[in-house]
Nucleic acid binder design. Structure first.
Length: 527
RNA sequence: GACCCCAUCGUCUAGUCAGGUCUAGGACAUCAGGUUUUCAUCCUGAAAACACGGGUUCGAAUCCCGUUGGGGUCGCCA
């Protein structure tokens, strides 16, 4: 890590902004998560904006060289983990948010003594003092700074308190976040600090340290927060809460997770609210078959959301391009992102809208691409399903379900009938009554008659089958539904499935004939 | 509690900086029709908001003040 060798000219914010926009100065932004858990959607959005701003400079024909850096803020040794850092990077990559260079780890910088040197400088200048082994920064003057979103912020010194910049022995004499963030941003030449508004008041501390150390200030851009639909703070706690409730409701056995490698003690602690561990929440939910609210990026990924849809939706929280444009991809965001169009008020996360975005994106995918993506998703998360279909079947399956799938996981539920044994089809009784039994068993009669026609079909392809059903219906002067619906019930147990030709073809000749036979037998009207 | 910040349909938002073109536009969700063999689509339409109270002004969603409501910070967490 070396300071980047360029000089920033001191100008007013406005002029600076105009210059940076027009002349493509050396823009450097960063995302600086602490590796204490998975990537939260709020963090993802912050990263997205910082990334987009840097790439906007880099991508312009004028030849800017915007850089987007990743820094792992692991100064809390007790809570940080390398696994979390890896998962953070994984999720970022999945979203297509790529960073320049190697990620910087604050623990490594600490080991090199980087922060200690600055602490000493502050101590020598009388701007900080020792306090029982820790070092505190003296907040003895008024602070003012400008934010690109919130404008001019001013706080009187009476409102400010001295704060720790280096932890005592128990904390490994690590710098605190407040010190490390300032030094690292400075040393890596960060020009724009883009972060959540929860840091707005913290900025008084950061600015004070910068002034004391003689650093230039970066441009601050604080973004509004993302809240739950009910207005409460969106936190990973919500997952633990939902899982805990499910566990208590179901009187979950604390030993139930031992096969999954989670001890009864930990489960007990979880239920007693002594920890909120993600892995426990997820495992409990899996066992109890309940759906937890998606909070982290990986939750949305697991639920079958596309990264492009998530990014598009997230972009629209607290920012919009104007002109009533809502659907766009990464390139558009990079080209159009600007601080000027960032809002100030918090927004609530609306899953319905994201859901719709995802559905639209799935529908718009080139079929080959969808098949490949779906296969990858199922292989990773629904192995039995991916294994249960051969290549030809899978191709048909993907084609039939692309227009119906709103997430990559949905086909698994929608097409559950494909994997069950013929004699295990569960008939929806309402469907049986309406489609098979009504009008004195008309549906059953049609089904019975059609079975012979079907048996004579040579080419078991969707098109031929579709045509066969149509021709049969016409010959009997029946609406298509009169034939298709009884068939659906026979093949799937319900009245809902892809078009009837696709459904027949998917289920296959042998199983289709068998299922019709079984259906006639099991749903016969008893006298 | 102190300090900082915020406030347009249920939700995300446009409009607010440069007050009139706003009988407030779009999207998601909702409701009602239509297309369709079911479902999913698709099409048409409807309902739905400037938090409240003062002030400035010929004129305020837009500017000012206050109230209320919400969020954040006040950790040897970040």
């Amino acid at each position: 890590m070396r300071a980047r060798g360029f000089t920033r000219i001191t100008l007013t914010r406005t002029v600076q902004r105009v210059m940076s926009d027009v002349q493509h100065q050396h823009i450097v932004t960063r995302f600086a998560p602490s590796p204490t858990g998975a990537l939260h959607v709020g963090g993802a959005r912050t990263a997205l904006f910082a990334w987009a701003y840097a790439r906007q400079q880099g991508a312009s024909p004028g030849g800017g060289d915007g850089r987007f850096l990743l820094r792992i803020e692991d100064t809390d040794r007790a809570r940080s983990s390398d696994a979390a850092a890896q998962s953070l990077m994984n999720d970022l990559r999945w979203l297509g948010i790529n960073w320049d260079g190697e990620p910087v780890y604050q623990s490594e910088r600490h080991a090199q003594g980087v922060y200690d040197a600055y602490v000493q400088q502050l101590l020598d200048a009388g701007r900080a003092y020792e306090d029982d082994g820790a070092v505190r920064f003296r907040m003895d003057r008024d602070v003012a700074f400008d934010d690109e979103v919130y404008g001019h912020i001013e706080v009187q010194k009476e409102q400010l308190e001295d704060f720790v910049i280096r932890k005592g022995d128990a904390g490994g004499r690590f710098p605190t976040f407040h010190l490390a963030v300032v030094i690292d941003d400075h040393d890596s030449g960060v020009t724009h600090v883009i972060r959540g508004q929860e840091h707005l008041t913290n900025t008084t501390k950061h600015v004070a340290i910068q002034d004391a150390l003689g650093f230039d200030r970066p441009t601050y851009v604080h973004t509004p927060s993302i809240m739950n639909p009910d207005g409460s703070k969106m936190s990973k706690r919500d997952k633990a809460k939902a899982a805990r409730k499910a566990a208590v409701d179901a009187q979950f056995d604390v030993n139930g997770l031992q096969p999954a490698g989670i001890s009864a003690d930990r489960v007990q602690a979880f239920i007693e609210k002594n920890n909120d561990d993600d892995d426990i929440a997820d495992t409990i939910a899996h066992h109890l078959n309940v759906v937890l609210p998606e909070i982290d990026v990986r939750d949305f990924r697991a639920s079958g959301y596309l990264p492009g849809a998530l990014i598009n939706y997230l972009s629209l929280l607290g920012w919009n391009p104007g002109d009533n444009v809502e659907r766009f991809g990464r390139d558009f965001l990079v080209a159009h992102f600007s601080f000027k169009r960032l809002g100030k008020s918090n927004s609530r996360f609306d899953r319905d809208k994201l859901f719709r975005f995802n559905a639209d994106d799935i529908a718009a995918m080139p079929p080959d691409n969808f098949a490949k993506t779906l296969h990858g998703h199922l292989a990773e998360r629904h192995g039995d399903f991916a294994d249960g279909l051969d290549d030809a079947q899978f191709a048909m399956f993907a084609k039939a379900y692309q227009p119906r799938a709103r997430t990559l996981s949905e086909p698994v539920t929608l097409a559950a009938y494909l994997l069950v044994d013929d004699d295990a089809i569960a008939y929806d009784q309402k469907a049986v009554k309406k489609v098979l039994h009504k009008a004195d068993g008309e549906g059953l009669r049609v089904l019975h008659e059609f079975a012979d026609t079907l048996a004579a079909v040579d080419d078991w392809s969707p098109d031929t089958l579709e045509q066969t059903v149509k021709t049969f219906a016409e010959s009997r002067e029946l609406g298509l539904g009169k034939v298709a619906q009884p068939l659906r019930v026979a093949l799937t147990g319900s009245t809902v499935s892809p078009s009837i030709g696709d459904t027949l073809s998917l289920v296959g000749r042998q199983r289709s004939m068998h299922r019709i036979e079984l259906c006639l037998e099991r749903n016969a009207i008893r006298a």
